Amino acid sequence: MEIRTAVSPRDIKAYTTERMREEFLIQDLLLPGKIKMVYSHVDRIIAGGARPAEPIALQAGKEIGADFFLQRREMGIVNIGPAGTVMVDGTEYRLEKSDGLYVSMGSKDLVFSSDDPKNPAKFYFNSCPAHAAFPTKKILKKDIKGNHLGSIQQSNERTIYKYIDPQAGAKSCQLVMGMTVLEPGNMWNSMPCHTHDRRMEVYFYFDLPENAVVFHLMGEPAETRHIVMRNEEAVISPSWSIHSGVGTASYTFIWGMCGENQNFDDMDHVPMAILK
């Protein structure tokens, strides 16, 4: 498990491209036969991925400081690849592509596996601290009523699917998680942009063509920076930072948030005039 410490917005004014990528970019999350995780000190979120050729059990390390991984945590999982199964305390949850799973705090044994070991599932997950337990729940994308937003004229026509949310999808203690799907020919996300000092966020970009990139924008509104991202990469967004991006092709991304509240619409909108 990699550790990423919290960063001041004053510090990144002097960061090189390499340093920006070291602090915020998460690569190689879906390595065959492995579970990889990055632990951020920003609201203690963990972003991780599992691509199991053979069943792989999730283990708690020293970084967690608990008897088992979800002793004081909850987790949201989305499968972005071929079908696979997540076993939670002996109960199997089979996930097709784009299906999700909320896993309750207190769940002791969690094992990832694939239907076809030669074509493994791709499980992306977020985990954050929790202080109350909510039921483990399978989330089928086809059952989620998407929120269609944007327009082709602004190159941001998209549909938002809320997987873990107090008003839609699975209920949780702290974690809010969902997926945004851009329509073909659309490139922008989260623009006009916003911040939310009450929550941090992680974006995970996927379904991006091999030779395409996303220019992910971050930083304070008047002091922005960018990180060039490729398929199946994630980026940490501290609460003081905007989080927006434009691709050279359309794409999909998973967003995960934790912090003071679970209100999806609690945003501090940034006027376009002050962006720099």
Rank of each mutant, 00 (worst) to 15 (best):
V7Q: 07
R10Y: 13
D11R: 07
D11C: 01
I12L: 13
I12V: 13
K13T: 12
T17K: 12
I26D: 00
Q27G: 01
I35P: 00
K36G: 10
V38C: 14
V42M: 09
V42Y: 10
R44C: 09
G48A: 10
G49E: 02
P52V: 06
A53G: 03
E54P: 00
Q59W: 01
A66D: 13
Q71F: 04
R72G: 03
G76D: 06
I80Y: 02
A83W: 03
D89Q: 09
E96D: 14
G100Q: 02
S104R: 09
S104Q: 14
G106L: 05
D109E: 15
K118V: 07
K118T: 15
N119M: 06
Y124I: 15
N126H: 10
C128N: 05
P129N: 10
A130C: 11
K137E: 15
K141Q: 14
D143M: 04
G150H: 10
G150S: 08
P166N: 10
P166V: 02
Q167F: 11
V176L: 08
M177P: 00
M179G: 02
T180D: 07
T180A: 07
V181Q: 15
N186C: 11
M187P: 00
N189I: 13
S190V: 07
C193A: 13
D197E: 12
R198T: 12
E201H: 08
L217Y: 13
G219R: 00
A222T: 15
E223Q: 14
R225M: 11
H226G: 00
M229F: 10
N231W: 03
V235I: 15
S237C: 14
S237P: 00
P238Q: 09
S239R: 09
H243K: 09
V246Q: 13
T248D: 12
T248M: 10
T252H: 10
G256W: 04
G256D: 08
M257D: 04
M257A: 08
C258F: 01
D266M: 01
D268F: 07
M272F: 11
I274W: 11
